[in-house]
Computed example of a mutant assay.
Amino acid sequence: MATVTTHEIRRVGPRFGAEVIGIDLTHSVDEGTADQLRQAFQEHKVLVFRDQNLTPDQHVAAVRIFAEPFDHPTAAKDSAHPLVYPYNVRHTGKASTWHIGGLWRSPVFAIESLTYEEVPELGGHTLWADLQTAYDDLSEPFKVLLESVSAVYDADPQNYAQGATRSSVVETVEHPLVLKHPATGRKGLFISTSALGLTGVTPEEGRTLLDHLLRHASSPDYTIRFGWNPGDFVLWDNQATWHYAVDDYGDGARVYRKVIGVERPGDTSAA
């Protein structure tokens, strides 16, 4: 039976990001609450639910409120559920760069989410930056230029797997530098530090342009920061933000589970 809830959406930054108070995702929620959560997700782009302690099945069910859980072709799978991907940074390595998930595919993942199991005593926070607001603050002539440029990325999903030793790039995929969000229609920058180069400009122009955009989109003006406790659950809009896991905890523990979401078949794009 679905649980009817009264909850609070508590903003954590002036531009984006929120904590959801008063919802227990270990139980299913009613459709009215699910609609409110989807609206909050579109508005805030990063939602944190504290002290949830979700099982793998519950984690998948929570993501299903927002998107269709995705079967990753190369990620190591949790023995308890094939749509859950376990990470232990002592074995898989750290994601301490600004990045977007799923750049090997088009479209990229709509949502990424984590349930934390072990965290360091100090440090190990995660940053997100709002790529849509970063785009808004660019000049109009610069926006016109960016509309005609794409970034090139490695298209091999194996090179994005946990702990992978990257092979040479054989096939590439292009993503526009300006993405019109499929759900909201809002434009934003769409850039990651793993970009191999830019199309439509000279190599020298591309290096200069890429360097500027990476610095601009990671400015503190556009970021929020969360620290973690075991049991916390977070999901974020992978098409409106990028993120950075701060590596300030040495060899401390950081163990979590990931579930990815993509658009459901039949979802309509914003006009």
Rank of each mutant, 00 (worst) to 15 (best):
D237I: 08
R215V: 10
R15V: 15
Q132Y: 05
N159D: 06
T33E: 05
G200T: 05
A164V: 14
L235N: 07
V149R: 06
S96G: 12
G22Y: 12
D211P: 00
G252R: 11
Q58G: 03
A2Q: 15
S167Y: 06
A217I: 01
T3N: 13
T165Q: 13
V20S: 11
V149K: 06
E19R: 14
G188T: 10
I9D: 02
D154I: 01
E117D: 11
K45F: 02
D247Q: 09
L54S: 04
G197N: 13
W242T: 01
V149N: 05
I100L: 12
N159V: 06
L138A: 00
G227I: 00
V84G: 03
V246N: 09
P14A: 15
A151L: 01
L122Y: 06
T3C: 08
V262K: 04
Q52A: 00
A253H: 08
Q58C: 05
W128C: 02
D247I: 02
L210M: 13
H125Y: 02
L54P: 05
I23C: 13
P176G: 10
S269P: 07
V201E: 08
F70C: 01
E8F: 13
A164W: 11
P230A: 15
E19Y: 02
F70N: 03
W228A: 15
L54V: 01
S150P: 00
R225S: 15
L179A: 08
R64T: 13
G231H: 07
